[in-house]
């Protein structure tokens, strides 16, 4: 009897010690460090490769034998990659602005008002994101062609808005749901019109959600490839994601140029993440993705 109890206690203590170690700071940090390494090594390798020069890229060895900015110069100036950078900035900021303009009021309406077919419409919004985009790329291309917007920046912007708006309406709606309706009602009782209640009370409270949606839209449209690739083939209209692909030639792939283009392409992304990390970290879990 007493030995049995002893055995139980020993096994209990062993398990406790085991989990204490597993959950301890050492192990946790090791796992974290490994994960970060996994993400950073390819990016680091790309950055290193971009400084190696045309021959150097194919030579075995970690650090560049001779350090050169030559790939950057050739990519940005000779291949007119700078033009794509400008295109990407125009496309992403415009897309972000348009998506916010539509998704914030739409999300608010879906979160607050009952109107005929409201659920059906909302399911329709979500449904449009459920099938793979490639399934509709032909009719989409034909539509853009009919509008005479092939090889234009507006054509790509329309594609981006179409791609990201449904998801952002969904996120905004869930964020607004996390704001108690009594807050709006309180504003109505305090003397606001419906629109004033939205603008003066609800909108400021939704800022973290709006910031998340804005950041996500910017990042998503910055990296989008498929639709941009279908619509644009000219230097004047193509964004970074498509332009990078140009360095994959028919006969050879110029590693150092792809790497240089890649480094240029991720700089804005990194800047956005650094400047808005507060919103990315707190905004998403505290409202946008909670309580759906």
């Amino acid at each position: 009897m007493s030995t049995e109890e002893n055995y139980d206690r020993i096994s209990y203590e062993t398990r406790q010690r085991f989990w204490n170690v597993i959950e301890g700071p050492m192990v946790v940090h090791l796992v974290l460090a490994f994960t970060v390494l996994l993400i950073l090594v390819p990016i680091g390798w790309m950055a290193i490769t971009s400084f190696k020069g045309a021959q150097g890229a194919f030579i075995a060895g970690y650090l560049p034998a001779e350090f050169t900015f030559d790939p950057y110069e050739r990519v940005l100036i000779e291949n007119n990659y700078w033009r794509s950078v400008v295109n990407s900035i125009v496309i992403s900021t415009t897309t972000t602005f348009l998506v916010l303009l539509f998704s914030v009021p739409a999300g608010y309406a879906f979160s607050r008002f009952r109107f005929p077919f409201d659920n059906a419409i909302f399911i329709g919004v979500i449904f449009s994101r459920l099938f793979p985009p490639i399934g509709i790329i032909i009719p989409y291309f034909q539509g853009i062609a009919a509008l005479n917007l092939i090889n234009t920046v507006p054509g790509i912007i329309i594609a981006q808005v179409y791609l990201w708006l449904p998801l952002m309406i969904y996120i905004m709606r869930n964020f607004f749901i996390s704001i108690p309706e009594e807050i709006d009602e309180s504003a109505l009782v305090d003397g606001c019109t419906q629109f004033q209640a939205f603008r003066r009370i609800v909108l400021p409270l939704a800022m973290p959600g709006i910031a998340s949606v804005g950041i996500l839209t910017f990042l998503y449209s910055w990296r989008e490839f498929l639709f941009s690739f279908m619509i644009s083939s000219t230097t004047a209209s193509k964004p970074i994601s498509v332009a990078v692909f140009d360095f994959v030639g028919e006969v050879n792939v110029s590693w150092e140029m792809i790497s240089a283009a890649g480094v240029v392409a991720i700089i804005p992304t990194v800047l956005v993440v650094i400047f808005f990390q507060q919103y990315i970290v707190t905004g998403l879990p505290s409202g946008a993705l909670k309580g759906s």
Partner: peptide
Amino acid sequence: DPRERDISMVFQNYALYP
């Protein structure tokens, strides 16, 4: 509308503007 009535209201969860 509520704003056109001469009333004010206290809500169960207070509904202060955070």
